[in-house]
Amino acid sequence: MTPYRYESGRRILWVDDRPNDNRPIAAHLERRGFHISYALSTGLALVLLSKNKYFAVISDMGRPEGIREGFHLLDSMRGRDDQTPVIFYASLDAPALREEAALHDAQGCTNNSAELIQLIEKLGNCPR
């Protein structure tokens, strides 16, 4: 195995048009043994998901493609029977957004970095 290949059980795809904002959290997850891949758009994320297996997807909600692009990504994934867990990490954290995320089959929605890490860890303890 080359040093650039990671098992799917330790790979996270982070979809955000401003990935630098998330570097401290990503570094924390990498210290815990995860490998983070980045996609700046929904289109690139869907290409990467079609070619690789991931433990989870972390996505922001709004991107230049649209303010609800996170839901578009998740719905596209589920539409092609991709059951990779999705957690939204968005600046807004309203109860209505959490409820809608659950209706779209997301595994979580938060704007808190500690809660995001807990959600990722919880996924690791649940059989898929």
Rank of each mutant, 00 (worst) to 15 (best):
S76D: 12
L97V: 08
M61G: 07
L48F: 13
P64K: 09
D93R: 02
S91D: 14
D81W: 12
A96W: 11
A96H: 13
L97T: 10
P95K: 04
R63E: 08
H72L: 07
R63Y: 12
V86T: 07
Q83Y: 11
Y89V: 05
R68F: 10
P85M: 00
R80D: 11
L48D: 07
T84V: 07
L48E: 07
S91V: 10
D82Q: 08
A94K: 15
R78Q: 05
V86I: 06
Y89N: 04
D82Y: 06
G70V: 08
S50P: 05
G70R: 03
G66V: 07
Y89L: 05
F88H: 01
S76Q: 12
E65D: 11
D75G: 14
F88Q: 01
D75V: 12
M61T: 09
V57P: 00
K53H: 14
S50M: 06
D81C: 12
L49M: 05
G66Y: 10
S76T: 13
F88R: 00
H72V: 13
S59C: 03
R78W: 06
R80N: 12
E69Q: 15
S91P: 12
T84E: 02
P64F: 07
L92W: 13
Y89P: 01
G62A: 10
I67W: 14
G66K: 06
L49R: 01
I87A: 02
T84N: 02
F88T: 00
A90I: 07
P95F: 06
Y54V: 05
R80T: 14
D82L: 04
G62W: 05
E65W: 09
M77R: 02
T84Y: 03
K53W: 11
A56N: 02
S59N: 06
Q83V: 10
H72E: 11
K51E: 07
D82G: 08
S59I: 02
R78D: 04
S59K: 03
M77I: 09
I87F: 05
S76N: 15
A94N: 14
P85E: 01
F71R: 03
T84W: 00
I67E: 15
F88K: 00
S59T: 07
L97A: 11
A96P: 08
R63T: 14
A56G: 03
S91T: 14
S76Y: 10
E65N: 08
I87S: 01
R63H: 11
L48I: 09
V86K: 01
D81Q: 14
Y54D: 00
L92G: 10
M77V: 09
Y89S: 04
M61L: 13
L74H: 10
